[in-house]
């Protein structure tokens, strides 16, 4: 697989949110405004890219040589948690407004299953270092794309006449399903 197909596949064909259904929690939680959706997406992308590099090093230089693959989830979570802490500190310093807008969902990037999921998938696919980083970048961009699309639609939904029982999260889930169906159209592209 070329790097480009890996990237394209992670963004569109196997979009982590809309096709693999990973990371639904922030997808529902931070998709009310485009601004904070972009911020959340970029923060997650950053964590994914850095985590990609670190998890690859850990997997192939620590876990495999020492025969400790059973520690995979634990050590990956450690990396991700540390990275999220770093992003949180950085954001608090540089962009307090974004920090507040993301609120609880920022520390929750730690438990965003899309991040752990992509790291484990990268190992399963036996990607090399560059491929893993590109895969992480693609996963992050795909996550951002899904979040921003959703936020854009939900901003317009504020003015729509939605049946009462569906208002709020209800219509959001229907939307997510429709978006997911639309992304199904990309299957077979790569």
């Amino acid at each position: 697989m070329t790097l480009f197909t890996i990237l394209l596949s992670a963004i569109l064909v196997n979009n982590f949110v809309l096709v693999r259904f990973l990371g639904i929690c922030p997808f529902m939680g931070v998709s009310k405004q485009v601004g904070s959706a972009i911020g959340m997406g970029l923060a997650t992308t950053f964590v994914m890219v850095v985590a990609a590099a670190l998890t690859w090093v850990i997997q192939w230089f620590i876990l495999e040589p020492f025969g400790l693959p059973f520690l995979q989830s634990m050590s990956f979570i450690l990396v991700i948690a540390a990275m999220v802490q770093l992003v949180e500190m950085f954001l608090h310093k540089t962009s307090p407004a974004l920090y507040r807008a993301m609120g609880i969902f920022l520390p929750l990037i730690t438990t965003n299953c899309a991040i752990l999921g992509f790291a484990i998938m990268a190992v399963q696919n036996s990607y090399n270092f560059i491929e893993t980083v590109i895969f992480g970048l693609g996963a992050g961009l795909g996550f951002t794309l899904a979040l921003v699309l959703m936020a854009g639609i939900r901003e317009d939904l504020e003015f729509a006449d939605i049946p009462k029982p569906l208002r709020g999260v209800g219509i959001a889930f229907i939307l997510a399903g429709l978006l997911s169906l639309a992304f199904g159209g990309f299957s077979g592209l790569v």
Partner: peptide
């Protein structure tokens, strides 16, 4: 195996902890 696990995970955790401690000084608000 237990010993290697302990040492590898422990040293990784210590490394990250040190990094975060430096970062928290750097980005202190």
């Amino acid at each position: 195996t237990a010993l290697v696990s302990l040492i590898s995970m422990g040293s990784m955790a210590a490394l990250f902890a040190f990094g975060l401690a430096v970062a928290s000084k750097q980005f202190a608000v």
